[in-house]
């Protein structure tokens, strides 16, 4: 008898516990009150299931709304970011073109200044530069094919040297002689000499040099 009473109390407590857990205390006067708590959980009666679903839905709705608002906001920010990125790329391109143009003007001035060199300009008996070689160097610098302007120097062997160097120490020099172009490169510590090459081959070397990382 005592055992039965204890069992009943235990079952009652269990019912209250599950009712609170499921948040259905307020509906206990309805069909829920006849809910069999010893029944396996997988078989929760349909009306309880609906109540749970409805409660979950109620709680999820504002979360979903917030989530949608955030997605919209993120899309807007992404769009703005893309626009800014495009603008930065455009500015970079303009800057690069201006820089090359400015360097081209400097190089043209430098080459033209070689016209003033008289005999022994280098203190070791170097001869003045011929008109031909100055014109050839000028045409090279001014060529539309030359996308990257070098640093320009005279040499004491009647040639004009165009020099390129990257921060990784890869190096390319083009030497313009009256009758030929020659080149020398140090790329990834490998030295290469090009004794006599054409204008197009020279341009190709420069383009390849800058296409490397």
């Amino acid at each position: 008898m005592i055992n039965n009473t204890m069992e009943n109390v235990e079952i009652k407590n269990q019912r209250n516990y599950f009712s609170e857990l499921l948040g259905i205390q307020q509906y206990s006067s309805g069909s829920v009150s006849s809910f069999d708590f010893n029944f396996p959980v997988t078989s929760i009666p349909i009306n309880v299931e609906q109540l749970i679903k409805s409660e979950i839905k109620k709680q999820i709705t504002p979360i979903k709304e917030t989530q949608n608002a955030l997605v919209d906001q993120f899309a807007e920010i992404s769009l703005e970011h893309e626009t800014i990125k495009d603008e930065i790329n455009n500015l970079r391109k303009i800057y690069s073109e201006n820089y090359q143009l400015k360097k081209k003007l400097n190089n043209i001035n430098t080459i033209l200044s070689f016209k003033k060199f008289e005999t022994n300009w280098n203190g070791n008996g170097a001869e003045p530069f011929s008109e031909n070689i100055i014109e050839k160097a000028f045409a090279f610098t001014n060529s539309q094919s030359l996308k990257f302007q070098p640093n320009v120097f005279p040499t004491g062997r009647q040639s004009i040297q165009f020099e390129y160097e990257k921060s990784n120490e890869n190096y390319l020099e083009i030497e313009i002689f009256e009758d030929k172009y020659s080149a020398y490169s140090e790329i990834d510590n490998k030295e290469t000499e090009y004794e006599s090459i054409s204008f197009n081959e020279t341009i190709k070397l420069i383009d390849e040099f800058y296409s490397r990382i």
Partner: peptide, 8 residues
């Protein structure tokens, strides 16, 4: 520049 050391 290396041109400093290029002399006929």
């Amino acid at each position: 520049t290396s041109a400093l050391f290029k002399d006929r």
